[in-house]
Design a protein around this nucleic acid. Structure first.
Lengths: 228, 228
DNA sequence: ACACAAAAAAGAGCAGTGCTCTTGCAATGG
DNA sequence: CCATTGCAAGAGCACTGCTCTTTTTTGTGT
């Protein structure tokens, strides 16, 4: 049994959760750079050193928040995919993209935490990989579905990139052709380029109607990657 | 006369330059988060408070570095454009893209400073705008040149986005059609999406042959935006 | 050549940070 | 019931950005 394993364990889990909750509050309010162990402890009515019983370092706490952020974004993407139901590939794709953008706009600091500049000296541990992959999986799924039916056009693939693309396909989606896998990864990076530029202020004084622009851009992205 | 305007002024400029130089060294070595005024001062053999005569705050020093980084990237892009000479639009475009990527890989922390997550509470002042625009100008120039000659295909533009695209064209490149301006901005964001993903580690364990992948992706980008 | 004002540097200090180590207390389980 | 174990607290270290005051340097006009 994993519940009811002693009051001690239970209390520990509760305190851990409270710390993460307060940390997430501070993250949303001020950003990762201003997330302070001491402030979290203060808010929770404990002394800073006590926190180290729960998280061995500030970075470890950040890692926990990173995983949560990846999961929240992945869940938002999955929800959009499910809502889009059995629409055509392009609208399904754009629906997921818009969900990503909407989540990012609603949680800018958490987005910056996972897709912004990495903290120097901090390497994301393996633990984050599954959570990080969730959103990508949703995109892969859309391309996979598009292959059944007439929804996927032919794509060029230069010979010099074929080995890499084959490897990519084998790793990510063994049932997809190499050129689709390559296009998929490019689309993935470009999607987050659009979101990051908007969120990180590069569109300030450049683009006004960002929602419409985004919709147009991701439609182009979908078409460019062969979705029909 | 602006030179030889008193030894005092001259000394001031020299110290300012030395501070920026040392700061850039530390930035390259450890990243923006670990850039410390005290450490810079220490390295220069002065006391930390003396630095405030030259830069009113750490953020102001960062701003100076940001402008330098934008300028260096812009210069790299311009060099690539000039080297590409009168090649066809697509190779000229990819040459500039590869120059951007190469510069970013060579100066990861400076890249992160300008295209990574913004420092919370820090808004880039107007001063950075001209430097920031340089790289974009290079891309605009390529599209402009492509219009003379057969190098630019027709692009779709949804009616709902036309007003925004017209405004965009008027602001950025009055001699380009609205749909080209819109595509340009999207390409711009997507290019930096590719570079950021590689630099920020999202391609770890995903893409091996990053150079070839990048070349393929930006070629697709160019085609998608109408270059031929 | 010298005195003076302006500029620069130094020093002390404040409030904050992450993190470590020791000490004391209290709940748990044999 | 009491030893063990888990946890919180406190003090302290080495930092950070930044301010304010005092001292020193330095270019220049008389």
């Amino acid at each position: 049994m994993t519940t009811a394993q002693g009051a001690r364990e239970r209390a520990r889990n509760e305190v851990t959760a409270a710390i993460k909750e307060e940390a997430r509050r501070q993250l949303a309010a001020e950003g990762a750079a201003k997330l302070s162990l001491r402030a979290v402890a203060r808010e929770l009515g404990m002394v800073s050193s006590a926190l180290y019983r729960y998280f061995p370092s500030r970075d470890e706490l950040l890692t926990a928040l990173i995983i949560d952020a990846y999961d929240a974004l992945g869940a938002a993407a999955e929800r959009a995919r499910d809502t889009a139901g059995d629409a055509a590939p392009v609208p399904r794709f754009t629906a997921v993209c818009e969900a990503v953008r909407t989540w990012a706009l609603a949680h800018p600091h958490e987005y910056a935490l996972i897709y912004g500049s990495p903290v120097p000296g901090y390497a994301a541990p393996e633990t984050t990989v599954p959570a990080a992959a969730r959103t990508g999986m949703v995109l892969i799924g859309i391309f996979r579905d598009a292959r059944r039916g007439p929804g996927l056009a032919e794509l060029p693939l230069p010979a010099e990139l074929r080995p890499e693309a084959e490897r990519l396909a084998a790793d990510l989606a063994p049932d997809l052709p190499a050129e689709v896998a390559a296009a998929l990864v490019a689309v993935w990076a470009q999607l987050f380029g659009l979101v990051s530029f908007e969120l990180f202020g590069q569109f300030n004084n450049v683009i006004e109607d960002r929602e419409r622009f985004f919709r147009h851009a991701v439609t182009g992205l979908a078409r460019g990657a062969g979705l029909r």
